[in-house]
Each structure stands twice: as C-alpha cells, then as structure tokens.
C-alpha cells in the first residue's frame, strides 16, 4: 500500500468573505508527481502555501506525513522551490554555494564543526543538477535556467522526501525548460522524490504527472481530478 504523504480535507481560505479556496480535498502519495494547475488567480499558490504551513487555512485540515501541518517539525524532509521572481533580487550578493548551503544551517551556528560534510553536500547537490562548476559564481549573474537549477540543488540539499515547487519554469526559455523537466523526471522516477508542483501550464508536465488537481474558482474540479498513471 502506498504511503500517504500529504492529505488535505475540506480546506477553506478566505480574505474577509471572499473565498480563495473552498472545500479542497486531496491525497498525495509517496513517489507521486503531482501537479496543481488552473488559471491565474484560481488559488494554486495559496493552496501550496497552506500545504507548507506558510498560510493558515480557516477551514479544514492538512496533514504532512500523518501529522497536522501546525505540529509538523521535520522540515528537513521538505524541499521548496519558490517562484523565482518572488524568491530573490538578482542583485542580491550571494554565490551559488552560499545559496545551496542556506537550508543546511537551519539548526547550527557560524562556527560550524561539520563544514566539510556541508561542503560535500553542496558539491553533491550542485553536481546532481549539472551546476558543479558554478559554485563560486554569483547567483544573479547566471541565466534564469541556471538559477532554477541552483534552486533545485538548494531544495535537494537536505535530501528531502518531497519537493514543493511554485511555477518553477516561469521566465525560462524552451530549451532550459525541457532540461529542467528532464531533471525533475529523473529526480522523481530514479531518486523517488515526491514532487508537488504548481503550474498554470499543465500541458508541459502532462507526460510526467501521475496526479493532477485542477483548481477553478477556488475549488478542485472533480472532472479534472484524474489519476494518469504512466
């Protein structure tokens, strides 16, 4: 029996009386490549943020690995790739290495004793996305496609079981987009990482996704909720 990693039940989120999400329920299992899709303003990113505990729903429940999201604490199990435009200013002075290291230090100090282990993880994460030679480069001076790969490496750094992605290919050219999806496919099918992606362009990931949730006016469209097992 497949392990249920993310469960949402009757999730409701509103600003005042204006419902952004209404009675959204879903199950996502280990190893899934799940896509949350829908037109702009349908509530996709809001749903993703609720699943990550960044926003608190007014109604319903979310469970991550069987625990209510409010009580979940094993965040090293979770990788997150934000929308690039929301994530950072391209003039931010940070090297690729510094970006990938960031989540690895969430519980430790400047004078860390396991610097060597952390450097090894950074090397491995960057190599796995084909960015091993860019460690010392400034993140803002890379192409958009390369930046997305660095963000994937950052999400992979803690060896997560799930990676959440919010419109990861926004602003990427077609060639980089294809390379990016090939990388995701490999992470999902070879490494077994569960992927939960928000995208407004489902056609691009149709061949990879095995679970699709179509959001329309804040509700999950039942007709679209089909499991496409490949």
């Amino acid at each position: 029996m497949q392990e249920l990693v993310l469960k949402g039940r009757d999730i409701g989120f509103r600003y005042g009386s204006n419902y952004i999400l209404d009675k959204c329920s879903f199950d996502i299992y280990k190893g899934d490549f799940s896509v949350i899709t829908g037109p702009n303003g349908s509530g996709k990113s809001t749903l993703l943020k609720i699943c990550l505990g960044l926003l608190k729903q007014q109604e319903g429940t979310v469970e991550l690995f069987g625990k209510p999201i409010e009580k979940y604490s094993d965040w090293k199990n979770i990788g997150y790739m934000p929308q690039r435009v929301e994530a950072f200013n391209t003039r931010f002075p940070a090297t690729v290495e510094e970006v990938v290291k960031a989540p690895l230090y969430s519980g430790s100090a400047f004078f860390s004793t396991n610097k060597k282990a952390i450097n090894n993880i950074v090397e491995k994460s960057l190599s796995s996305v084909g960015m091993g030679d860019y460690k010392k480069r400034l993140i803002g001076r890379l192409s958009v496609g390369q930046q997305q790969r660095v963000f994937i490496a950052k999400a992979l750094a803690n060896n997560p079981a799930i990676i959440f992605m919010d419109e990861p290919t926004a602003g990427i050219d077609n060639k980089s987009e294809k390379e990016f999806y090939d990388l995701l496919y490999s992470l999902n099918r070879v490494e077994g990482i569960t992927i939960i992606m928000v995208t407004h362009d489902y056609a691009d990931v149709e061949s990879m996704a095995n679970r699709v949730f179509c959001l329309s006016n804040g509700t999950i469209d039942e007709k679209c909720e089909e499991v496409v097992r490949k």
Binding site: L54, K76, Y80, A87, K154
Partner: peptide, 17 residues
C-alpha cells in the same frame, strides 16, 4: 546562516523551520 537565509528567501527559511 539563519540571517542570511531570511534575507535571501524568507519563505524558504520559514519552511526549513
């Protein structure tokens, strides 16, 4: 490192605990 992370990507930092 935590201050760096919240300056670079506050949502990512929040998700990492």
């Amino acid at each position: 490192h935590k201050l760096f992370y919240i300056s670079f990507d506050s949502e990512g930092a929040q998700i990492s605990g």
